[in-house]
Design a binder for these strands. Structure first.
Lengths: 204, 204
DNA sequence: CCGACGTTTGAACGGCCGGTCAAGCCCGAG
DNA sequence: CTCGGGCTTGACCGGCCGTTCAAACGTCGG
């Protein structure tokens, strides 16, 4: 049946991408071998190269795929919440590494950092990174604008605030992920909420 | 003469570390080969391993060495300025990639990002990173405290502000370094100064 | 039951690169 | 001038890993 083959193929594709993302998360991009991915996916090494042109392409695809996936999940979850303030609160909580009890969800921050490093020299990855980052800022800005339109927040430059808040989250997340003894997840969460309240103009 | 040999040895050591830092900056940690460093230093590949135990050790040392060096240079330059406000201004300007006309000074941000990625799995590097990061926050906090003691700034929690400002700088620098079309060096500089003024409590 | 084709395997190849080493070089001491 | 010991070289080794490939497998259509 020709209708089942393409779907099976697509599944294999994604299975391998998932496995690759998992391996990269735990071993790091530089230490990830094709055979590691094969093991994680439960297939033979040869099959990896049957579905992907090269190791480099596979890893690059895995990085953007995983981050894109995280973003989609976050957006879907946030859209359910009624008020802008709650949405923002949730976005921050989801961004703090280790703050919420993760249900077997791989941490996206290490993958993000690999994207950064790779994007420095890989133009294709640089383009993907910029798109993902713009979406990230955009989604923050959209929440702020929605809150302003609903009268929740006073009128201010949403894009500028989104840039600052998003960058602050990035910078803090780096330290939290490194287990910095001075920057606990709780402290990061609090700092983000306070800055958000102050910049956007709402009460905590 | 036994007094001259140790100095020559130390020079060679540093020459190689410098060369390694340069190579890592332009090729990336993962793509840096021993022979690249040898070429950059103008010596033979064998000599690299005469001075360093292994490639891994060399690269790890080079990363912390270069970042430490940058930090020392920044501190020295800042200490010359008379007021806390000027010091802060200078610190921000120096932190914005590509904002000041660089005089043949290698950009430390790509090296920082390599440190982050490596620190995720290398405990020794993790320790060095935390120390460097603490110094970074500390130096911001010290400037703020000095300004408060001098009556330049109102009394607030200097450590908390330093954490926020430092993290904001990190997060913004990432995007600037990636040549993000929405985040120019000028925009980063302005955002940092405005946040600093607002958080610390001074007029621009 | 057969043939065909997409999928999967794992052995084998080949290049690359970290690390070793024996040999020379340089320079100062005696 | 000669000796000695660090310093430097570059050829070489060995293993690792990305990639290739021929063979096998399984499934579906006829």
């Amino acid at each position: 049946m020709s209708a089942v083959r393409p779907r099976a193929t697509k599944d294999r594709h994604q299975e391998i991408l998932d496995a690759a993302a998992r391996v990269i998360t735990e071993r790091g991009l530089a230490e990830t071998r094709i055979s590691d991915v094969a093991d994680a996916a439960g297939v033979s090494p040869g099959l990896i190269l049957y579905y992907f042109d090269s190791k480099d392409r596979l890893l690059a695809e895995a990085l953007t795929y995983a981050n894109d996936d995280f973003f989609v999940r976050m957006s879907r979850e946030i859209r359910r919440l009624p008020t802008a303030k709650e949405q923002l609160h949730r976005l921050i909580d989801l961004s703090v590494p280790g703050y919420l009890p993760e249900d077997s969800k791989l941490d996206e921050w290490p993958l993000w950092m690999e994207v950064w490093v790779r994007a420095l020299r890989d133009p294709r990855m640089a383009k993907d990174r910029e798109i993902l980052d713009q979406r990230w800022r955009q989604s923050i800005a959209d929440i702020i604008r929605a809150g302003q339109a609903a009268g929740e927040f006073p009128a201010r430059d949403a894009d500028e605030i989104a840039l600052r808040l998003g960058s602050l989250i990035d910078g803090l997340a780096i330290q939290v992920i490194m287990n910095d003894s001075q920057v606990s997840p709780e402290r990061m969460q609090r700092a983000c909420m306070e800055v958000a309240a102050q910049e956007i103009g709402f009460e905590l």
